[in-house]
Design a protein around this nucleic acid. Structure first.
Lengths: 185, 185
DNA sequence: TATTTTATTGAACAATTGTACAATAAAATC
DNA sequence: GATTTTATTGTACAATTGTTCAATAAAATA
């Protein structure tokens, strides 16, 4: 199976478009393989040639979003006008803007009925950022546990945000984070 | 449907026993309804009268474990011999002993192929503990975000522990937590 | 352009799912 | 113990899943 073969590219593209359309109507867990293939106008056999379940197509999407998250940390940051970032590397707090940008996707990823796989993908990505961005994490000699602690703590904020239907702005979320980090534990 | 009806009790008991047996052979995601009913010697129709999917039976299990977690916080704590708990309420760190006790279950809950539902059940339970146990959380006026931050941070440690195949002892995990909490962020 | 490679198709298949319902058996209630 | 209630069973059914395979069509390569 050659990923660059035009036929493969077309098939995947069709599935991506079809899935996006279906996700606007119904939750991921309710989308059947048959249904997706019908909408994408590809054969069910072709689907099983590339994937195992509908979630795998969604996972491909999410991998692209994870690339965006990663890449967004290489650009200069332009949201420093509101925050007191004295004790905080601005890079850290860009996560919330990214989440807001892909709000629709994170509503799926954080919903109850999906596999934990997506959560772990997000966790690993944020964890990597914590490792690279030393200021995102308490000082002192770091270890595996500290990184997982810090990364998942931020994810805790995101879960709470999700439960508030992402009503707060990304900048307000930054304020929450700064407030928490400025306490002495 | 009367939960106390002996027939119901028997049916559920049979399903519980059957699921426990099957979980020793294969992951939760691979256990079919048909298979479970065959093992439990109950009719498939009966299954669908009580549940929607195999995961629902597992969820019943997990609810019992959540009760144990909750209850364990009402008993006196007996593991204070190793730790310096000067800056830490001993209650907080009892979570790791509970996890170790039900290691087999948490291996399932934290695995990649299951629904996030179980993760959220655990999150909510630890979050409640954080609310009740003020010392588990940084000082200052608390809010929803702080509790979610703290609860999920502890879950971050548990995820890391899970990825280490729970090799560390519960007391060693307590040391990790104390080390992290004693830093100034 | 001709040839080779291979992704896609369509069709068939058994297995599983999810639902429905009347008949039955087991428990609760009197 | 007799009656009522209802959980369970067996059966049937359509829909979906997951797999297989030869035929085909589309792309890559020479």
């Amino acid at each position: 199976m050659n990923k660059n073969d035009l036929r493969v590219v077309k098939t995947k593209q069709n599935l991506h478009v079809a899935l996006t359309k279906l996700l606007k109507i119904k939750p991921l867990s309710q989308i059947k393989v048959t249904e997706l293939c019908l909408k994408a106008k590809i054969n069910r056999g072709t689907f099983y040639f590339h994937y195992q379940e509908v979630g795998d197509v969604f996972k491909e999407f999410f991998e692209e979003i994870m690339v965006d998250l990663k890449e967004s940390y290489d650009e200069p940051y332009r949201h420093t006008d509101i925050l007191d970032v004295e004790h905080l590397d601005p890079k850290t707090v860009r996560i919330f803007h990214h989440i807001k940008k892909y709000e629709d996707f994170y509503n799926i990823i954080l919903s109850h009925e999906v596999s934990t796989e997506y959560y772990y993908m997000l966790f690993d990505e944020i964890r990597k950022i914590c490792i690279e961005d030393k200021n995102a994490v308490p000082t002192g000699k770091p270890n595996e546990y500290l990184y997982s602690y810090s990364a998942n703590a931020i994810l805790g904020l995101i879960i709470e945000w999700y439960r508030h239907d992402f009503q707060e702005s990304a900048d307000e979320m930054n304020v929450h984070l700064v407030n928490i980090l400025n306490r002495k534990i």
